[in-house]
Design a protein around this nucleic acid. Structure first.
Lengths: 156, 156
DNA sequence: CACGATAGACAACCTGGTTAACTATATGGA
DNA sequence: TCCATATAGTTAACCAGGTTGTCTATCGTG
């Protein structure tokens, strides 16, 4: 709105900064052979991890029901980012694993984020950026790898 | 997941910080007579503004179709945050205005965000917080009142 | 070996987005 | 003045992704 309230700016700037980075990442990925990737996919693939996981476990990690996790896996499978294999040790379980294409998306994401961070460092100075990260780390204790973001966005 | 990639931390911390503020805001609001408010409502009510708006205009502001804006208005109307009145000057238009209850939600949000910012200042020091905000402002040029967040979240 | 727990699939439902089609009303130019 | 065009809002059909509940198959243990 028009009325300037200092307290409003902090959350909005944090969100804008996040959106900027995510948008730039995906513009890059779309040009680098990943036209179908969406921001959510990155979170899910991070949650799947290098060793694979199951729908139930993925649901717990993402903060959604196992059914919702199953649907998400369906989507990623259709795009070619994951594949399901049955667990030889337990025929109830289906292990979801990243494909080479999926791992490529994660590798490229890491590289793009590093580039974007370097751009921030060039603009702000390396010291200021480190301070910014340190301050954010201080205000958001715990590991940054909380991947329940899909569940969180769900009830926005 | 486990492999530490510096570039990944920045966006994740920005998002975590945003989520923390939003979650704390809504915990507060739920206890202050707004049990039905959801994060999205704040954005929409900000977009409606003190003078009211129409569904088409709101859709443009939020970055969604006029039909989606209409549905959102329905929801907010049901909860009691907005009311529709017909424009006497143009009988096609229906002006959507915040109710007193809706304005109360915005007022309380502003106060809670100010409190949260004060808590950050107490933890980080006022100078560091101002630097953090200044750095974010520098990296996210433009006004922070881009309210197309609902549309943006839509295709996450 | 039977029973409780677990993994996954399926169905029905909700929300909030989309596009398309339709009605009613304004508006501006011939 | 009248008609063509543009605009506001509603409705419908569809989609994605979340929910809960139910069902089957399999595991593991007492």
């Amino acid at each position: 709105m028009s009325s300037y309230v200092p307290g409003f700016e902090l959350p909005l700037r944090l969100l804008l900064a996040f959106r900027m980075l995510i948008d730039e990442l995906h513009t890059e990925l779309h040009q680098q052979g990943h036209p179908d990737i969406r921001p959510m996919h990155g979170f899910v693939m991070q949650a799947i991890g290098p060793d694979g996981t199951t729908a139930v476990e993925l649901g717990r990690t993402l903060g959604v029901s196992k059914q919702a996790a199953g649907k998400t896996i369906d989507t990623l499978e259709r795009v070619g980012y994951v594949e399901r294999t049955t667990d030889p040790a337990d025929s109830r379980r289906k292990i979801v694993r990243l494909t080479a294409y999926g791992m490529d998306a994660l590798d490229r994401s890491a590289r793009v984020f590093d580039d974007l961070r370097a751009r921030w460092a060039a603009e702000l100075g390396a010291d200021r950026l480190r301070e910014l990260e340190s301050d954010l780390r201080r205000m958001t204790p715990g590991n940054p790898w909380r991947l329940d973001t899909p569940g969180w966005f769900g009830n926005l």
